[in-house]
């Protein structure tokens, strides 16, 4: 049974999230403010944290920063729209994904599932995302039975997205891993390669979804 920690200052929101999560078999603990949230995270050792960005006092970003100093527990950000820059900041500080309020319960639970699926382990030279299989040993990508013809950059890009399948990856995170900061305008190069990848993945394969101003998400299922 997974244990979830909710850090949100809205009591009603906490109560509802508790009901939703408990109905899914989660054990739930909660905190109404950042400092308490950090204490709970230390004492309860949750398997996943739901963190509201708009906390009074110690803000969500600060909580995340301090949490990441000693813990790599998956963190799902809850935030209202119009916080694009803050969302990017949170993701780059180590948050695993976000949902935008008001969110659908289905979406929330799906995101929680994805971020708890343990991140890709290095022992395995294969990444599987739905019908897509990346063979890291031979640098080959297969979609079903079909071998995809990818350039080295496209392969690297697809690898980053597939490693995080179902999760948002920011443009910066992609650029860092694929270009290692060597491209003068990673944004432009990124669009070009995404465009090519989408064409090669076709209509039926996994979809590369754009989250404007933030990054990309590979939806495999």
């Amino acid at each position: 049974m997974s244990k979830a920690l909710i850090i949100d200052d809205e009591q009603q929101m906490r109560r509802l999230l508790r009901m939703v999560l408990e109905s899914r078999g989660y054990e739930v603990c909660e905190a109404a403010e950042g400092q308490l949230g950090l204490q709970e995270a230390a004492f309860q050792r949750p398997d996943v944290v739901l963190l509201d960005l708009g906390l009074p006092g110690l803000g969500g970003i600060e909580v995340l920063k301090r949490l990441r100093e000693w813990s790599d527990v998956p963190v799902l950000i809850l935030s209202v729209r119009d916080h694009e820059t803050v969302k990017i900041e949170a993701l780059e500080l180590g948050a695993d994904d976000y949902v935008t309020k008001p969110f659908g319960t289905g979406e929330l639970l799906a995101r929680l599932d994805v971020i708890q699926r343990r991140r890709f382990t290095r022992q395995n030279p294969q990444i599987v995302a739905g019908a897509l299989v990346l063979d890291l040993l031979h640098h080959e990508a297969r979609l079903g039975d079909e071998l995809l013809k990818l350039t080295p950059t496209e392969f690297a890009l697809l690898k980053v997205l597939a490693e995080h399948a179902g999760r948002i990856v920011t443009q910066n995170q992609i650029a860092k891993q694929v270009w290692a900061g060597q491209s003068s305008d990673p944004s432009e190069g990124l669009r070009v390669h995404i465009n090519h990848l989408r064409k090669k993945l076709g209509e039926s394969g996994p979809r590369i979804v754009n989250e404007p101003g933030i990054g990309y998400r590979l939806n495999a299922d």
Binding site: E10, Q12, M13, L16, L17, M19, V20, S23, G54, V80, R81, D82, K101, P102, F103, G104, T105, G106
Partner: peptide, 20 residues
């Protein structure tokens, strides 16, 4: 931001409750 938060929170709560 604060007005936005105040207005959107109840809407979010209604949405989540309806899903429930």
């Amino acid at each position: 931001d604060s007005v936005s938060h105040e207005l959107k929170t109840p809407i979010a709560i209604i949405r989540t409750a309806l899903d429930g």
